[in-house]
Design a protein around this nucleic acid. Structure first.
Length: 293
DNA sequence: AACATAAGCAACCGCCGACAA
DNA sequence: GTTGTCGGCGGTTGCTTATGT
């Protein structure tokens, strides 16, 4: 039987006071993160451990950016959401200083409605205003990113993928896809497995996630270029290689560790795959076909 | 000015996967 | 293989603020 993360009685709830923030920040800076269950007691906070973690992660942690999501970030969110669905933590991981909660809130309050209206225009449906609906709380399958089906895929073994270290032009993005994927046995795939092959075997053998990682790298690199121009960020400029150490990637068919390195930082890619996004990525129209395996 | 409604967002809840015993 | 714990995630709630009437 799972015990609750903390005793609920006598604990503070709701908004955090400045004093609580100070105590939590001081404690974590001197003792480090982790041990959230016991942290409140040790720090002298009348809060649930989960609440402490959430407060730290979403608000108190250093280098958190708040508000003013710029156009480039917004574009990145839209594209990532199209690729990954509601995987807020994954999306936030690609937006330095942003938290999953902020991205989620931003999507729910700004982007979702906008994209939904766009989709409805596209499919000739009513807008919210036209139908007289108010604030939507329940999940709506027509909501963007979900208007087309999102499929959970099985990953395949992939032990190592290397990218050329030279700087990439945007036009070269799709060329990244052809950077020596490996088969289960570790051998390079034949040219028949490359993206312009419509054969479904391409998806099975190549590994759908392998397609997405480069695309996300592209997103990051293009995003970084824009921001580097503005002097905002530059830490993601050098997308140099993708590496899947065999010992870290047992890569059973159900779960391949999808890890890539951007500017020295490691990212894991675990996500639902949007095949429509994939089709646009590949420049192939597969709207009418759903591949599941 | 007062009230109603909508929007924004911090925080909570419950579930799940990873891990250890 | 089973059970319990922990940390993390996504969905949802509810309070606060903004806007409309």
């Amino acid at each position: 039987m799972r015990r609750p993360c903390c005793a609920k009685e006598g604990l503070n709830r709701g908004a955090w006071s400045a004093e609580e923030d100070e105590i939590l920040t001081y404690y974590i800076k001197s003792h480090g993160e982790g041990q959230w269950r016991d942290l409140p007691q040790r720090a002298g906070l009348k809060r649930c451990g989960k609440s402490c973690r959430l407060r730290w992660v979403n608000y108190l942690r250093p280098y958190i950016k708040r508000g003013n999501i710029c156009e480039e970030e917004e574009e990145l969110i839209l594209r990532m959401h199209k690729l990954l669905g509601n995987r807020w933590a994954l999306i936030a991981a690609r937006l330095p200083g942003r938290t999953d909660n902020e991205i989620k809130n931003y999507w729910n309050t700004n982007l979702r409605k906008r994209v939904r209206d766009r989709d409805r225009q596209k499919f000739g449906m009513q807008t919210d205003n036209e139908s007289g609906q108010g604030r939507l709380r329940i999940a709506n399958s027509i909501v963007s990113g979900e208007a087309h089906r999102v499929i959970r895929t099985k990953a395949v073994r992939c032990t190592k993928v290397l990218f050329q270290p030279q700087p990439l032009e945007k036009e070269q993005s799709h060329a990244m896809l052809s950077d020596v994927p490996l088969t289960d046995s570790g051998n390079p795939l034949s040219s028949s497995h490359y993206p312009n092959d419509k054969n479904i075997d391409f998806l099975v053998d190549f590994g759908i996630d392998d397609l997405l990682a480069p695309d996300i790298d592209l997103l990051m690199s293009s995003y970084s270029m824009v921001h580097a121009d503005k002097g905002i960020i530059n830490e993601h400029k050098d997308v140099t290689h993708v590496n899947f150490p065999a010992e870290e990637s047992p890569c059973a068919p159900m779960g391949c560790a999808r890890r890539f390195v951007v500017g020295g930082e490691h990212f894991d890619l675990n996500g639902e795959i949007d095949f429509n996004a994939l089709s646009s990525l590949l420049g192939e129209g597969c709207d009418d076909e759903i591949f599941a395996y």
